[in-house]
């Protein structure tokens, strides 16, 4: 057990950040932590940026994480990940799905999407460890881009002291019945992405 683990999941509406954070918070509960989760719905569902915060700890008060105190940042989309630099500290771990979704100012040619290297620099220079995760590519290989989120969770799970069975049990409870096997497969795919495994 750790004293506390704070997670931020950032992505774009429709990418499954809410499902992923629901899984993450339930897993924390199963692992014996006090847990809280915060998210914002509403206007942001319509293709806007979305973010969920999940906290595991001995006793969690605020559902919101403080700046400079996130232990893990999971970026489901590159640009959205880069918005959370202020929450990182020199021991934070950052996983970013190698996937771009262009906002309207970029698609219409008014703004430029930042370079991959620039995003990596912004995040890695403030964190303890930075890793690209080819979750989108792996999800497409599994036949469904929506699986990228669970693949990201799989990668994260390899760092945490919780049995994979717990994760798989929670996934089975929270995803639609006909997608359980596919999501379990996606989770295992992500878990195996840990370097050297």
């Amino acid at each position: 057990m750790y004293n506390k683990i704070d997670f931020i999941i950032a992505g774009v509406g429709g990418q499954g950040t809410i499902l992923a954070s629901d899984i993450l918070v339930e897993v924390g509960l199963h692992a014996g932590y006090d847990v809280k989760k915060s998210e914002v719905h509403g206007m942001s569902q319509r293709g806007g940026g979305v973010e969920s915060q999940v906290r595991w700890g001995e006793r969690v008060y605020s559902p919101l994480i403080e700046k400079g105190k996130a232990d893990y940042l999971l970026g489901f989309e590159m640009l959205e990940a880069a918005r959370w630099t202020e929450y990182l500290n020199p021991s934070s771990v950052v996983y970013v799905n190698r996937h771009k979704m262009y906002p309207p100012s970029v698609t219409t040619g008014q703004a430029e999407y930042p370079a991959e290297t620039a995003i990596e620099h912004e995040l890695s220079s403030r964190a303890g460890r930075y890793e690209w995760v080819d979750a989108m590519a792996a999800a497409k290989e599994l036949g469904n881009p929506a699986l990228a989120g669970v693949i990201m969770l799989g990668r994260l799970s390899a760092d945490l002291d919780v049995e994979p069975e717990t994760w798989l049990k929670v996934i089975a409870e929270l995803v639609p019945a006909k997608l359980v096997e596919l999501n379990k497969k996606a989770f295992i795919t992500g878990r195996k992405m840990k370097k050297g495994v």
């Binding site: 774009v12 509406g13 206007m43 942001s44 569902q45 319509r46 293709g47 806007g48 940026g49 640009l79 959205e80 880069a82 918005r83 630099t85 906002p103 309207p104 100012s105 970029v106 703004a111 430029e112 999407y113 930042p114 620039a118 995003i119 912004e122």
Partner: peptide
């Protein structure tokens, strides 16, 4: 972040 991050409005 020190780079420009284009906004993503709904």
């Amino acid at each position: 972040a020190s780079i420009d991050l284009p906004m993503r409005p709904p």
